[in-house]
Amino acid sequence: MDRPASILLVEDEAIIRMMLVEMIEELGHRVVAEAGHLDQAQSLAENEQYDLAILDINLQGSNVRPVAEAITARGRPFFFLSGYGSGGVPEQFKSRPVLHKPCAIEMLSRTIDAIWPNRQPDDAQG
């Protein structure tokens, strides 16, 4: 079986964040850190241990660019979530996937699988 991803989730709307956590867990992954504010998200992006990140583009009026830069500096994959399409994606991250909110669990699953290159079978150890 594939190793589940540990995920940093950045979303400023609490209800959407809770729904995403449920979907991520249903897919067999786990959310290891959540943030709804830019400062908190940047701190977690720089210090938390995670395999990949899911980022809302607009956090209470602030663009998530500094968080995306921190994740990139650590060499971790990520993708964006947006209710506004790809318009707010920072220029240097235009090539990153953007999921539109609300997203279907199938799209979430496909996007996680596409960006997480380390998803490999574990050694046969129990």
Rank of each mutant, 00 (worst) to 15 (best):
N58W: 07
H100R: 15
E34Y: 04
L55M: 03
E13D: 11
G85T: 03
D113F: 10
Y84Q: 09
L81P: 04
V67N: 00
G61F: 06
L59Y: 08
P90F: 12
F80T: 04
G75T: 04
M18L: 15
G61T: 07
S82H: 05
H100P: 00
A70P: 11
I115R: 01
E34Q: 15
A73P: 11
D39Q: 13
L59R: 00
S82P: 05
E22Y: 11
P102W: 11
F93D: 01
G28N: 12
D2H: 07
I54K: 01
A124R: 12
L38F: 03
L38I: 14
Q120K: 08
A104V: 11
N47F: 07
A14M: 08
V21C: 15
S43R: 12
A33M: 04
A33S: 12
N63P: 06
Q92T: 03
N58Y: 05
A68L: 08
A70S: 10
F80A: 01
E106H: 13
P4D: 10
F93C: 05
P97V: 01
P90I: 00
F80K: 02
R3S: 14
D113H: 13
F78V: 04
N118P: 00
P121F: 02
G126V: 13
Y84W: 05
F79K: 08
G88M: 02
H37G: 03
I16V: 15
G36K: 02
G61W: 04
G36A: 11
N118L: 12
D51M: 00
D113C: 11
R30G: 12
L81R: 02
A114I: 02
L108A: 09
D12G: 06
V98E: 10
V21Q: 15
A53V: 09
L8K: 01
A68R: 07
L9D: 02
S95F: 10
E106M: 12
G61K: 03
L108D: 03
L59T: 10
G75N: 00
G85S: 03
L52A: 09
H37M: 14
P77L: 04
F79L: 10
Q40V: 14
S82N: 12
T111L: 10
D2N: 11
P97C: 03
V98F: 14
R74Q: 00
I112Q: 13
Q42R: 14
P97N: 09
C103W: 08
P77E: 06
Q125M: 13
P97E: 00
F80L: 03
E26C: 13
I57P: 00
G87F: 01
V64F: 04
R65D: 06
E26S: 15
Q92I: 03
V89C: 06
G83P: 05
V32K: 08
S82W: 13
R96C: 11
Q125P: 07
H100M: 14
W116S: 10
Y84S: 11
M1R: 11
L59W: 05
S6Y: 05
I54A: 05
Y50G: 04
A5I: 01
W116L: 04
M107S: 14
S86D: 10
S109A: 15
Q125N: 11
